[in-house]
Amino acid sequence: MTRRNEAARQAILTAAYDLVGEIGYSKLSVEGIATRAGVGKQTIYRWWPSKGAVLLDALLLTVGGPAGDLPDTGDLEADLRTILFATVDEFADPGVDAVMRGLIAEIAHDPGLAALYAERVDGPVRELKRRRLRAAQEAGQIDPDLDLDAAVDLLWGPLLSRWLQRAGPLDHDFAARTISMALSGMSRKM
């Protein structure tokens, strides 16, 4: 990609991220993104099929995509606190909140965007979570027969649900209680 194209790409992603925070997803348009970025809307459609796809890339640019393994200090509870507290902090960020809510709304109606999100975000992140829990199984910290996908949902599902529905405070205390309850359910069978 040429420098000019990369500059335009960055301007588009920044414009989309900023605009969704200012006006909300329902009012966000490709035309508005193009105007803010100083490009033609055809430039956006050359690289992305929809405003949702632009937002996905804007989110990945801002918070980063899945990278490396999750913390593994040998203390599963401490590691989960680090990970879930970071998740709570991301949800509390107004920019991330606006972009994620927009993406979730669009994913519900756009199977192509849902597949792209699953491929680029949810699938890789879920694998990182399973890998960390698998290491805990191998270390004898949790039940060796535990369904790892169910365990991932048990740990992260309450945070996502509370955030999505705005159903009470989503803070470190809630995350810590979720971890404690989940770990007691995942403990090794005697």
Rank of each mutant, 00 (worst) to 15 (best):
G65D: 07
A150C: 14
G185Y: 03
G24E: 12
I142A: 06
N5F: 14
V152D: 05
G38K: 02
T73V: 14
L56S: 00
D122F: 13
G65T: 11
E6H: 09
L13C: 02
D149G: 13
L55W: 03
D79F: 09
N5T: 11
A98C: 07
Q137F: 11
V152Y: 11
A167L: 12
L154S: 14
V88A: 02
L113K: 03
T73M: 14
A118E: 15
Y17W: 15
A53V: 08
Y117T: 04
F85A: 06
S187V: 07
R81P: 03
D149S: 12
A118F: 09
D75W: 08
R9K: 13
M181K: 07
S187E: 10
S161Q: 15
F174W: 12
A151M: 06
T178D: 08
D147A: 12
A139F: 07
L164A: 15
T178V: 10
L148R: 04
F91L: 02
L170N: 00
D97F: 02
M186D: 01
L76M: 12
V63P: 03
M1A: 09
D122R: 15
L160T: 04
K189M: 11
R134N: 05
A151E: 04
L159A: 07
L155Q: 02
G112W: 04
K189R: 15
W48C: 00
R4W: 11
A8S: 05
A114E: 05
I83R: 08
K51D: 00
F85S: 05
D122Q: 14
S29A: 10
L164S: 14
G68K: 11
A78T: 07
G65C: 12
A151S: 11
A175W: 00
D110A: 08
I179M: 03
L160I: 08
L128T: 02
M181A: 07
R166V: 10
T62Q: 06
D149H: 11
L28G: 00
G52V: 01
